[in-house]
Amino acid sequence: MAEQAVDRQEQEYPESRPQQPAAQKEKKPKKKISGDQWVAVGFLAPSFILVLIFVYGFIGWTGWVSVSNWNTLVPDFSFAGLKNYIYLFNDYRFQADLRNTVFFTILFIGLVIVMGLGLSILIDQKLRGESLFRNIFLFPMALSFVVTGVVWQWLLNPSTGYNQFLALFGIQPKWYTDTNILAGFEWGSIEFGLPVAIIAVVIAAVWQMTGFSLAMYLAGLRGIPDELREAARMDGASEFQIYKKVILPMLMPITVSVIIIMAHISLKIFDLIYAMTGSGANFVTDVPGVYMFETTFRGNYYANGAAIAIIMLLLVAVFIVPYLLANRRSDG
């Protein structure tokens, strides 16, 4: 009987009520642990155990490898203390990786937000062809970073691609082959500053991920009732003021979500750079993800690779853990 009632439901709108809401007592029955509740726990248990082992257990295991001497093909779990971490922080390549990650992350997140917000506001103006525009900006989201990397390494190749148009203006950027560090100063064994080559990778990554922030902001804009804008207009606010004072503050939670999600993508990025440029000369486009892969699986420095992985995890956790905890609190 319940089944028939369900069949008549609109699947898209499960909130529409069944015809006979047989709920006689509105108060939920007090929680006593029923047989069904135990079945529910049993339903969840396999997944939870898998996650405990494969996520938390394996992270612990990686942590253990990172303080071991396993830097050859043969596993060696003897305790090495922080040797591998100290090695990394004195390592030219890893210092370059940290620098590149900082600039990649800032530029990538900044551009994804600006482009996504700007384009979503334009698309939300009730112009003709809005779904066409939306689809054009969103489709790269369906692609693999590998595909993006393969294509953009040709588009930003210094001897062809966009440079053929830029030649008309007399500029020929060297894109990802540029080894310059802008505004650099000595830091450890490297020059700290913006590696020009990273800009090329940022362009490809922004091309791929702008659709994400665009979709998020569009959903946010659609959720803002028209009455609010009307009210602001009545009060004499200009369109610009409405966006600045009313709309943008309301989109703030979305911006936070976009920053968090883009940050974790950016901090662990591997495939795009591996497919597009590799480490680059002087490691100008190298990132921890690429270093970890190469040193572990090409060089058999397992302990070093594990240490890089743990540092990456800590960097991501700085963003993610507060976010998850805040989400949990607001759920409760």
Binding site: K31, I33, D36, Q37, A40, V41, F43, L44, S47, F48, V51, L52, F54, V55, Y56, G57, F58, I59, W61, T62, V65, H264, L267, K268, F270, P288, G289, M292, F293, T296, Y302, G305, A306, I308, A309, I310, M312, L313, V316, I320, V321, L324, L325, R328, D331, G332
Partner: peptide, 28 residues
């Protein structure tokens, strides 16, 4: 079928979505 601790379990599971997979790759 929420139960005591189920929200915590959810958060514990959710964290797995964000980890860099490099950090579980060697044991895996």
């Amino acid at each position: 079928w929420k139960f005591k601790g189920s929200e915590l379990i959810f958060t514990v599971i959710l964290f797995g979505m964000f980890i860099p997979y490099q950090s579980i790759l060697i044991p895996l």
